[in-house]
Amino acid sequence: MDDSHDALERALFALPLEEPPAGLRASILMATAYRPAPAFSVWELALLGALGAIGIWLVVLLALGGGSLFFQTLSTIGSVAARALSNAATLAWLAAGGATALWLSLFTGSQPLLATPYRSQGRASR
């Protein structure tokens, strides 16, 4: 009986692995280690989005009220921002928000933090 046990185990360990379909390895590598870097990083996208939104808003201001409303609004925003950023509580909330966003990015399935993606040839390194 021991012989049949050993023979079966030998046969099992000698069994070659299934041949995977052609292209499987390449597709895995392209989806993981060698995935193309996105055109913009998350922070760049957020900044572009914010700038775009501000730009549209200012254009609408100009369209509605002309130059005087535009400059008046800019002046108001500037003074409010200056007051807010000189306030310790506001800075603390901004820091808390930024830290939370950073912490959440660890769990969202985006690329591992601090692990830079593979950069394709066409994109200059920063």
Binding site: R25, I28, L29, T32, A33, Y34, P112, L114, A115, T116, Y118
Partner: peptide
């Protein structure tokens, strides 16, 4: 891989 070396993960694959 965690330090940013893609070839390391490729070796694992």
């Amino acid at each position: 891989t965690l330090r940013g070396n893609p070839d390391a993960f490729a070796t694992l694959v």
